[in-house]
């Protein structure tokens, strides 16, 4: 099933998405990967306000290439998500509704997603040029010293995603592979 979703991603909208569905996402998302996640958690530990409102937000695990003149952003495909597993449950419990990345997630992340009605989206890994060109506007809003790892606010239009793990915990990596193998029998 294909959905067109406009952000923010409320719990109600997220509940309608099932593993294997395709989504075209429009609105504002935030980038954060390894170093930014570490800092975000440190800010939470110190009781500080975060650079963006996590409630109903979607975080994109990406470190883009610099924009060439005339571009909003350079190439911007997903990075492997498991490295953010240590940090994700805490953000999910604060209302983070979506994560965009690639690759498997740990059990604690999936449990936190189910608890909070959140969704894990997959973008095509390695398709950086294609995904970067769907970004209409980009600005660094925190941790500029981290370069590509800084937190960017991105305005995206029809950003192409697959629902990999839905809010009930169904996983496309498991079901897609099984369906293909079953088709060979």
């Amino acid at each position: 099933m294909e959905h067109r979703i406009t952000l923010p991603l409320t719990r109600e909208k997220a509940a309608k998405l099932s593993s294997g569905d395709t989504v075209l996402l429009t609105g504002v998302i935030y980038t954060a990967r390894d170093a930014a996640h570490k800092r975000i958690i440190e800010m939470l530990d110190r009781g500080e306000a975060l650079p963006f409102d996590v409630e109903d937000a979607v975080i994109y695990y990406v470190g883009p290439t610099p924009a060439k003149p005339g571009q909003a952003l350079g190439s911007a495909g997903p990075t492997t998500s498991y490295r953010m597993d240590a940090y994700a449950p805490r953000l999910l419990d604060l209302g983070l509704r979506g994560m965009i990345g690639k690759g498997q997630r740990g059990v604690e992340v999936v449990e936190a997603m189910k608890r909070n009605g959140s969704v894990y989206f997959g973008a095509i890994g390695g398709a950086g040029a294609l995904l970067g060109s769907q970004v209409k506007k980009a600005e660094v809003i925190a941790f500029a010293d981290l370069g590509a790892e800084a937190v960017h606010r991105l305005e995206v239009e029809n950003f192409p995603l697959s629902v990999v793990i839905d809010s009930k915990g169904a996983n496309l990596y498991a079901s897609g592979r099984q369906a293909y193998l079953d088709s060979l029998k």
Binding site: G63, T65, G74, S75, G77, G128, A129, G132
Partner: peptide
């Protein structure tokens, strides 16, 4: 198909195929 489309776009726009350069 998307992967091939991405190769073509990177070539055409002279930009990195993948952001992890």
């Amino acid at each position: 198909d998307r992967i091939i489309e991405n190769y073509n776009l990177a070539d055409q726009n002279q930009m990195p195929i993948c952001q992890d350069t």
